[in-house]
Design a protein around this nucleic acid. Structure first.
Length: 597
RNA sequence: GCGUUCUUAGCUCAGCUGGACAGAGCGUCGGACUUCGAAUCCGCAGGUCGUAGGUUCGAAUCCUACAGGACGCGCCA
């Protein structure tokens, strides 16, 4: 904001100065950087690129600029030339009074901007299956979805969060069949399990069952009992699941009833998890409603000659334009596949809500799918296809490698949240904070959520990340709870200060950390903007850590609530601005703000 | 085989629209609570920025090749 403005003015002035010194207009663009040491200044302009044109050493050009400015107007700031750089030192206190007034007036709104005003952005994330509970992989997806949506909103966009629940298909039939076979009529109510875990258990049971049958078949074959092996093969769980899917698609009443019952169990469990971790959606789509969409679109494209019908009857598109092979869009029996459905779903969504942009938050393993999907939609002539984007993120792995459900290494979301909450609770009792807190359970839960969200969001989305369940759940160092702790401390200081008089003298703030904090507060809106442009919450995370660390260093060495009332007042204003900024950044990363912890 | 992507300290990660000696956290070791909350702070040690070239006044950052890892290239989703 203020600093940026001054910096821009300096850039312009230096450009003018260089024009005169170099006596030409055509020279490399002026770049800015930050000096390595604060004593050198706040903005640095490298002069090396002009050395050749001027046939002078960079420092000499700097000297020329200094003498140029001695006779020309220049923005505020002290100048010096060192090591080929033209440095400017700015007294940031000069704008802290208006900055503070602005931050205070904006409050929760500080940091918001209108760079994406009038943009309608739909964001798809989560997309769980209804055959098992959420795991750590989903959590990265959900955290990213929520954070990106909050960041886009902060940039002024109109955001709609959507979820597509995969509630049909062979994997769903498997858990249904397994329940039918082994369920004995038990229900989540009768066993006291959460619905998604209940159904997930039957899905695992199916996998074991399948393994068992395969083993039996092998053994029969080994004994030469081919007839019996064949009989068993005929009745293989896989085959029966396929049959069940056919029944489902044909609308078999009994199958549909079972499907509906089990789906409701899972979905209510998933919703509970969402609620627990602060995930919400503006609209939920169900695959059972959308899976037939897209077929007519493909047939239309076929008529228009965009797609081709192969000899075997399937419909395909040739992707040589984007250096890929052919891709099937309709099976030879005329049924749709995954990408066909996604085509239809995208079109339906645009009919439902005419977005400018649709962002899919999906793991990087599906990059190919989205490349093809976007290409086809563009081919079909949808102008909004240019606004489609795949926010691709890396895998969450364990120190031993990939999470594998077969090996039981999948980190369950509910378990993880529970475990973290328990740890936080233990911490609270260890520190004997239980009497200070209004609600220990709630506070512990908030701490758990902050730890998770911050951990998952502080890594750049595109990168794979490693989650070590033992080490990753620490609450000290660069963690969510650390940030919460800092903000709670500031809030505690402000509470202790009580009422204070209007106005303050920013020039009393002479400590280096104070200067750094003012610059950080001032830069927050542009960080929000950058995070929005790059769809990258980790930028907010880095910002928050910088701010918290600077403040904690600052108030460790300096007393805010001192005897000098004027100094105290100035420092309180600074602390308050820091707190407002941190709180706003918290809300973008879904880190709960705690008055006390 | 082709494509996408990643490789920075013992570990987990920042830094990447090129700029002044490469930064944190964890872990190790050592300090700091009669003083605004020690979930904190300070210090020590720890790095050929995967390798080799190239572009440039200047490269962790851009380009190329190579090595290693991950993911993809289904009429699965």
């Amino acid at each position: 904001m203020f600093f940026e403005k001054i910096s821009d003015e300096w850039k312009k002035s230096i450009e003018d100065g260089l024009k005169e010194i170099l006596s030409c207009v055509d020279f490399p663009a002026i770049t800015r950087t930050v000096p390595p040491k604060s004593e050198l200044g706040d903005i640095a302009f490298p002069l090396f690129p002009y050395s050749r044109i001027a046939r002078k050493a960079p420092d000499k050009i700097g000297e020329d600029l200094l003498s140029y400015f001695s006779s020309h107007e220049h923005p505020e700031g002290e100048m010096n030339v060192t090591g080929g750089y033209f440095n400017v030192k700015i007294d940031v206190r000069s704008f802290f009074a208006p900055l503070f007034a602005f931050v205070k007036e904006k409050g929760d709104e500080y940091g918001k901007n209108e760079s994406m005003k009038d943009k309608k952005i739909m964001l798809e994330f989560s997309c769980p299956n209804t055959n098992k509970p959420l795991h750590l992989g989903h959590m990265r997806n959900d955290s990213l979805g929520e954070a990106v949506s909050a960041i886009l909103k902060a940039n002024g966009a109109d955001v709609m969060k959507v979820n597509l629940i995969n509630n049909r298909g062979i994997h769903i039939s498997k858990s249904m069949l397994s329940y039918k076979e082994f369920g004995n009529g038990e229900t989540p109510e009768s066993t006291g399990e959460k619905g998604d875990h209940f159904v997930g258990r039957y899905y695992v049971l199916f996998a074991n069952w399948e393994k068992q049958v395969n083993k039996e078949i092998d053994e029969l074959r080994k004994d030469g009992r081919e007839e019996e092996a064949k009989a068993l093969e005929e009745n293989h769980p896989d085959k029966r699941a396929q049959e069940m899917l056919r029944l489902w698609e044909n609308g078999d009443k009994e199958t549909l009833e079972l499907w509906k019952k089990m789906n409701d169990w899972t979905i209510s469990g998933l919703m509970e998890s969402y609620e627990d971790t602060g995930i919400s959606f503006d609209r939920i789509y169900y695959e059972s409603d959308t899976y037939k969409l897209g077929k007519s679109e493909v047939l239309k494209g076929l008529e228009e000659g965009i797609f081709e019908r192969e000899e075997d009857g399937s419909v395909q598109i040739d992707l040589k334009e984007i250096n890929l092979d052919k891709k099937v869009l309709l099976r030879k029996d005329g049924t749709t596949i995954y990408i066909t459905q996604d085509l239809g779903t995208a079109i339906k969504r645009h009919e439902d809500w005419a977005f400018d942009s649709l962002i899919y938050v999906v793991a990087s393993e599906q990059a190919y799918h989205f490349k093809v999907l976007f290409y086809i939609l563009k081919k079909l002539g949808y102008p909004w296809a240019d606004g489609l984007r795949h926010l691709s993120y890396g895998m969450v792995n364990l120190p031993e490698g990939k999470m594998k459900s077969r090996e039981g290494t999948v980190v369950d979301a509910d378990d993880l949240v529970h475990e973290l909450s328990e740890l936080a609770k233990k911490e609270i009792y260890d520190k004997e904070r239980e009497n200070v807190l209004e609600n220990v359970e709630e506070t512990a839960h908030s701490i758990a959520i902050s730890a998770l969200n911050y951990y998952l969001l502080s890594v750049s989305p595109s990168k794979d990340m490693i989650f070590d369940p033992k080490k990753s759940i620490s609450f000290s160092g660069n963690t969510g709870p650390y940030l919460e702790y800092m903000s709670a401390r500031i809030s505690s200081i402000l509470r202790k200060a009580g009422e204070r008089k209007e106005g303050f003298d920013p020039h009393l703030l002479t400590v280096e950390d104070e200067k750094t904090l003012i610059k950080l507060i001032d830069s927050y809106p542009s960080v929000v903007k950058e995070a929005g442009e790059n769809l990258d919450p980790s930028l907010i995370a880095s910002f928050l850590y910088d701010m918290a660390k600077t403040f904690s260093h600052y108030y460790h060495d300096n007393t805010v609530l001192g005897k000098d009332k004027d100094l105290m007042n100035a420092r309180l204003c600074l602390s308050e601005a820091v707190l407002i900024t941190m709180k706003n950044a918290f809300s973008l990363l879904k880190i709960p703000y705690l008055e006390a912890m």
